[in-house]
Design a protein around this nucleic acid. Structure first.
Length: 203
DNA sequence: CCCTGATTCGC
DNA sequence: GCGAATCAGG
């Protein structure tokens, strides 16, 4: 594979969106994350300019013993990430999935509906049984989620489903899982409640 | 161990 | 220019 204009463009786009090199590599196919990183550097866009996602990849203005010629501009705050942070949906009665009005989706275009639209929603724990802290954590985390499709999930990506499988607005968390668990830290928090905790919460 | 990006250097 | 190997870090 070579760096065609299209591939470079996708690379640029994903990189500025804050996608990791390995994710970009997967998306492009035929290249390793090293290749992606190498290209990124050659293109001179290492600084994640254009829109900094922060969080996962904190900039490292480390004082190196190696004077870098190109002084980068301080990245500005990004306007992106306007996910309508859906409040944890309680299990829907039986209503049919209404046609989803196109949301101000800022996400990757390559994402389509995966599930045909069926009955069984994943057993979302009812909110009233989960600690408020854990819930807040989840809501916060879902904004930083990798938003993977079913096929992008691996042994080490959080498999927590977000949204309604019957709509376009559905994805899996995708953040790094907590060791041995199928979910990331935040989602493990709401997925596995110690019995004692539940009991104590009972009132 | 999993992952991240950064750098080097033979090709 | 390319990217595997390596480095440095979380």
């Amino acid at each position: 594979m070579s760096w065609t204009d299209e591939r470079v463009e996708l690379l640029k786009k994903m990189w500025s969106e804050g996608q990791s090199a390995s994710q970009i590599a997967k998306e492009l196919g035929g290249v390793t994350r090293n290749a992606v990183i190498g290209k990124v550097h050659r293109l001179g866009l290492s600084n994640r300019a254009g829109a900094a996602p922060a969080a996962a990849a904190p900039a490292k203005p480390e004082a190196k013993a190696k004077p870098t010629p190109a002084a980068e501009k301080p990245a500005a705050a990004e306007p992106k990430v306007a996910k309508p942070a859906a409040p944890k949906p309680a299990p829907k009665p039986a209503a049919e999935a209404a046609p989803v009005a196109e949301r101000p989706s800022n996400v990757t275009p390559i994402r389509k509906a995966i599930i045909p639209a069926g009955q069984p929603l994943p057993p979302q724990p009812s909110a009233n049984e989960i600690s408020p802290e854990a819930l807040a954590k989840v809501n916060a985390v879902e904004k930083k989620a990798k938003k993977l499709t079913l096929l992008e999930l691996t042994e080490r990506t959080c498999k927590w489903p977000v949204g309604d499988p019957a709509t376009e607005d559905f994805w899996f968390c995708g953040l790094p899982v907590q060791q041995g668990k199928p979910y990331c830290e935040a989602h493990v928090g709401v997925a596995f409640q110690p019995m004692s905790t539940r009991r104590d919460r009972r009132r």
